[in-house]
Write a protein that binds this DNA or RNA. Structure first.
Length: 110
DNA sequence: ACGTTGACCTATA
DNA sequence: GTATAGGCCAACG
């Protein structure tokens, strides 16, 4: 598979349904890199200058914290986007994150 | 090829 | 859902 690591990340993130969120670790694991969670975030960082629409705002860390909001422009954008999808944000943390969490491996299975 | 960096994760106190 | 330490993988200079 010569497809870039980024492509896999983008495709997975784009597969995240509306009103749902996922984690870097889940993405990395679904890709097959397991512990490459850091690289996933790195890839999303690059997604800013790409032409692909990557809903990076739906990607948060294991704690459900908007660790990536600091990299948005403006940082509040991530919070606003999540709230626009019905996701409640409290102090940069996703409310009921465990319920809103969407695992790419489950593909919609709750 | 080596060292550094990065939107992380896990373990321990 | 703190603080600190170590480890993981991929891309960049």
């Amino acid at each position: 598979m010569q497809y870039d690591f980024f492509i896999k990340v983008y495709d997975l993130v784009k597969s995240v349904p509306y009103g749902r969120v996922t984690t870097y670790g889940a993405i990395a694991r679904c890709i097959g890199s397991g512990g490459a969670a850091r690289t996933v975030g790195w890839a999303l960082n690059a997604s800013h200058h790409t032409q692909w629409d990557v809903p990076a705002h739906r990607v948060v860390n294991r704690r459900g914290m908007l660790s990536g909001k600091c990299h948005f422009n403006p940082p509040d954008l991530m919070n606003s986007l999540l709230e626009s999808e019905g996701i409640k944000i409290k102090d940069d943390y996703v409310v009921d994150f465990d319920d809103l969490f969407w695992d790419p491996s489950h593909r919609g299975s709750h």
